[in-house]
Design a protein around this nucleic acid. Structure first.
Length: 469
RNA sequence: GUCCCCAUCGUCUAGAGGCCUAGGACACCUCCCUUUCACGGAGGCGACCGGGGUUCGAAUCCCCGUGGGGACGCCA
């Protein structure tokens, strides 16, 4: 049997980190088993679903590179089919009309809660042999409920949590069609998972309690029961639950914040899943290794520091041309443009010199911006490193720069020569240069920086500094 | 309240009864490298929630606590 998995988000917001991991695991499982990965949009909540959210989810999937083999299917476009199946259930006697009003049900719930009972529908409209139903009220459009078994235990071998048993006595007759006739989530999922031939349902563990209901409906339809894998949730950096008003962000925010999709993917893969001690791996490797046996059943706390570490790793590995394209855009968004009025240093060379000091692409962009615009001088650093006694040495150097064979080695040799002639230590000259050239006291080797900046620009920045100080 | 789930360093995790004096990674600390800051290298700190069983032997199995989370919608 071919493996078929699915990712089934509801388009009520962006693709967040938890959804992304669920999608990643479903995707990887299908890839590992040469199966199909299906994307299904669960948009039956018309009031909350938006086309923007659909697009946001698609964008997120695309950025991560999670490609699907079928879909996206939209549940709203499958209404006719759901209604057919509901009719079948009605005909079979495994579903029935219920005329209880919302207010009535609310009151029922309330009183059950007060008695310390689990709130559930009491089956007042459930047809039973020899039972007389209440008279059908006027003007109340009925909902349709599934006739859930009242005894027995629903049991399944969850692929991450192990055996789970839930008594049918805990369940009630859930609504499968609203008063307006539209089917509800639990029902649509059942029909879709069945008809789309889903073999492994991999989803968040907030669905554990829906599973027995869905299994019962699957049985009523004569469908095969898929395997279930319930993933625990991802907590925020602070260990708190992620929610719209607390910490939940779109995966696209990571793009904006300067993270490479490879890093996010690798991080997410490792969050709740493991392959021995392996920490860094490609998606090809991940797909080859992935299994449901090594998923942790407990919740995992997000850790930005570790994501940063992975991101810095992938920045070091990334293709330079790709990085240059990306960094150009990031600089442009800060009004820093690589084409300048002086002969600007080659972006790829600059990036190559700076890439292993950055955690994010934004940091990388910020760190090299001064190659393409005049830096602001950190006056504290200037005061600390540029002392009156060193100025003549710098001046001498500036003069010699003019005729220098322009190479890192030659610049280095020149500084060394001045160090020796003046009985100084290397930093005594390097630090002032750093401040004059870059504006602050941290940079890669000053000879390499100066080399990339170019002779004219280096001289001009030194002169500009000395003129203004 | 009822049901379900979870529980190893600060964090992510390895661990399927002896390989555990509990391993790796991030973070942190120290040292080395060094031209500042990083990178890199070498070390270090640091955990089996508690209590009972089972067993020759338990982080691993069972039970009870405790703590955390989730679900109880005409949301998904």
């Amino acid at each position: 049997m071919t493996i078929r998995t699915r990712f089934a988000p509801s388009p009520t917001g962006f693709l967040h980190i938890g959804g992304a991991r669920t999608a990643l695991f479903s995707w990887a499982y299908a890839r590992k088993h040469a199966g199909q990965f299906i994307l299904r949009i669960e948009d039956t909540d018309v009031a909350r679903s938006t086309p923007e959210a659909v697009q946001a989810i698609l964008d997120g999937m695309k950025w991560l590179g999670l490609d699907w083999d079928e879909g996206p299917f939209y549940q709203m476009q499958r209404m006719d089919r759901y209604k057919e199946v509901i009719q079948k259930l009605l005909n079979d006697g495994t579903a029935y009309y219920c005329y209880s009003s919302k207010e009535e049900l609310e009151a029922l719930r309330e009183s059950q809660m007060q008695q310390g009972l689990k709130p559930r529908y009491d089956g007042r409209w459930r047809p039973e042999a020899g039972k007389s139903l209440p008279p059908v009220p006027e003007g109340i459009p009925p909902v349709i409920r599934f006739k859930n078994p009242q005894t027995g235990i629903v049991s399944w071998q969850d692929m991450v949590k192990g055996e789970i048993n839930i008594s049918n006595e805990e369940l009630d007759d859930l609504i499968i069609a609203r008063a307006d006739g539209t089917p509800t989530y639990n029902f649509c999922v059942v029909v879709d998972d069945w008809e789309m031939g889903i073999t492994q349902v991999i989803r968040g563990d907030d669905h554990v309690n829906n599973t027995p209901r869905q299994i019962n409906m699957l049985h009523a339809l004569g469908a095969d029961i898929p395997q279930y894998a319930h993933l625990s949730m991802i907590l925020g950096n602070d260990g708190q639950k992620l929610s719209k008003r607390h910490g939940a962000v779109s995966v696209m925010q990571y793009d904006e914040d300067g993270y490479l999709p490879e890093a996010v993917l690798n991080y997410l893969a490792r969050l709740g899943w493991s392959h021995g001690d392996d920490e860094i791996f490609s998606m090809d490797q991940f797909c080859a290794w992935f299994d449901l046996d090594h998923i942790t059943p407990s919740a995992a706390q997000f850790n930005t520091e570790k994501l940063n570490w992975l991101n810095s790793h992938y920045i070091k590995q990334a293709d330079l041309a790709y990085l240059a394209g990306d960094i150009t855009k990031r600089l442009a968004s800060k009004s820093v443009f690589v084409d300048m009025d002086y002969s600007a240093p080659d972006l790829q060379k600059v990036i190559d010199l700076y890439r292993d000091r950055a955690n994010t692409l934004n940091e990388l962009a910020d760190s090299i911006a001064y190659f393409y615009k005049m830096p602001e001088i950190d006056e504290a650093a200037a005061t600390k490193h540029i002392t009156a006694d060193i100025l003549p040495v710098i001046k001498t150097m500036t003069e010699q720069l003019a005729g220098l064979d322009w190479s890192v080695e030659a610049i280095h040799a020149l500084i060394n020569q001045l160090v020796t002639e003046n009985g100084l230590k290397f930093p005594k000259i390097a630090m002032p240069l750093r401040v004059m050239l870059t504006g602050n006291a941290q940079s890669p080797s000053i000879d390499a920086v100066m080399y990339l900046l170019g002779r004219d620009e280096a001289i001009s920045r030194i002169e500009k500094f000395t003129d203004s100080h």
